[in-house]
Write a protein that binds this DNA or RNA. Structure first.
Lengths: 239, 239
DNA sequence: AGCGCACTCTAACAAATGTTAATGCCCGTC
DNA sequence: GACGGGCATTAACATTTGTTAGAGTGCGCT
């Protein structure tokens, strides 16, 4: 059941059976969330961290004028709020973008891991560091990439991340986001989001229909995105 | 000498003398960097992490078209590349925006801390989590705030962060960024950056001259920025 | 004092992006 | 099979942001 987590953490460094057992021991109950439901509420102080077993979720903030901005997309194997273990108070919400199956890890047991399992602690820490690296890449995309390149970069990133947890199908993957939701990822209006998707389609590097993205020309898509996966730390090495 | 680090880490939770000694013991040699020098090069694999004792630095990425985007600003007391301890390879560069006095912490000794000092480990981990929280706030600002609000938010954030490490002077602080550099923070053209600064000045909430920012109306500045410092985790509580 | 240089600021125009509104399509419900 | 709602798409127009160019300003250097 925790396979996606093992795949996610294991991509960076070997994960021993003892460590897997520790992780499994930290888990408590499971739960399902429907589309649009808040998995974690902004302002709350959770006592557990949430691992996605299946589905797509997103961190977001809402401004006074009603504008919403997603700050990350979370795929199976991701702890959506591992940071709350130490940050304590959620400064943002987390919403289910597709039906989500999640499992909760008790903070008290995560704390025990930090007391007794230094290597596993470093891997969990690393997981949040990759989170930060993705954030930085998003900042660059928002600030200095063309919108087409930004979208292409997002497609590259999601494809690679989903591939790690075996959620791709050949060169395709399921992306259950409406264009309005995508607009809240890139920080665009819905109308312009539609234009940008159209532009990327027109170049012919992806086909995009029925919430399924198929990469037709991986090489050229990476070129358009200037995608360099270094920031995802997918190299397996001692940490 | 490590006072800014103690202030920075100590804002989140109490830091014991033993822990301060461990941190001090991790430090090796110091160094000065001139404006514009790279403190850490993109693509490198550092074996130490860099703590800013004095000065202002920034993380950045450069795109093929020459565009540069800063992904964070680093003030005294910040580890600019603590993440490289586990990420291993730098996926971005770090440049000195003012003359910088730094000190290097050996990764091997940081690793020893993770083996022997769980609470201090959590505080260091937390430091990188706050980093991530700041990134998220930047993403929101870039995607959904007006440019004036974005700039106001940046001023609020820097003021609060500098205050923690005692680098403010009443309601003023030194901000040695040219408008071209600021443009690379907000992701704007230099011309438009100039317009936005003019707009914020015109509202009368800040005065801004000679690289010194003075907040004239803190309350209204926060309103314009919708600034809520929760994300900086400045509450002192057990972690 | 004069020069050169980096930086700020402005103007005029071009391009990108947002807003409002309308149309068509798909799909589930009655 | 008709109806209604959410979503994708497009058009027309408004606003924001970028580009290019140049003038003004302060400051260190000779």
């Amino acid at each position: 059941m925790l396979e996606p987590l093992y795949l996610n953490l294991g991509q960076h460094d070997a994960l021993s059976d003892a460590e897997k057992a520790l992780l499994a021991g930290a888990m408590t109950f499971e739960r399902h969330f429907a589309i649009g439901q808040d998995i974690v509420a902004s302002g709350s102080r959770p006592t557990y961290s949430t691992l996605i077993l299946d589905g797509l979720a997103a961190r977001y903030k809402v401004l006074e004028n009603g504008g919403r901005q997603f700050t990350s997309l979370q795929v199976p194997g991701d702890f959506v709020d591992l940071h709350a273990f130490l940050l304590k108070t959620m400064d943002h919400g987390i919403v289910a973008l597709s039906p989500c199956h999640v499992i909760f890890a008790e903070h008290s047991r995560l704390r025990a891991i930090t007391e007794e399992a230094p290597h596993l602690t470093r891997l969990l820490w690393l997981d949040t560091l990759v989170d930060g690296a993705i954030h930085r890449e998003w900042i660059v995309a928002m600030g200095r990439r063309s919108k087409t390149s930004h979208l292409a970069h997002l497609v590259c990133e999601l494809f690679v991340r989903l591939q790690v947890v075996e959620r791709t199908n050949g060169m395709s993957f399921h992306l259950p986001l409406s264009q309005a939701e995508l607009a809240d990822v890139l920080g665009l209006s819905v109308v312009h989001m539609n234009r940008v998707i159209g532009a990327l389609r027109k170049v012919g590097v992806v086909s995009w229909a029925n919430h399924t993205v198929t990469i037709l020309d991986w090489h050229r898509l990476q070129e358009i995105a200037e995608f360099d996966p270094t920031y995802l730390s997918m190299m397996r090495e001692p940490r």
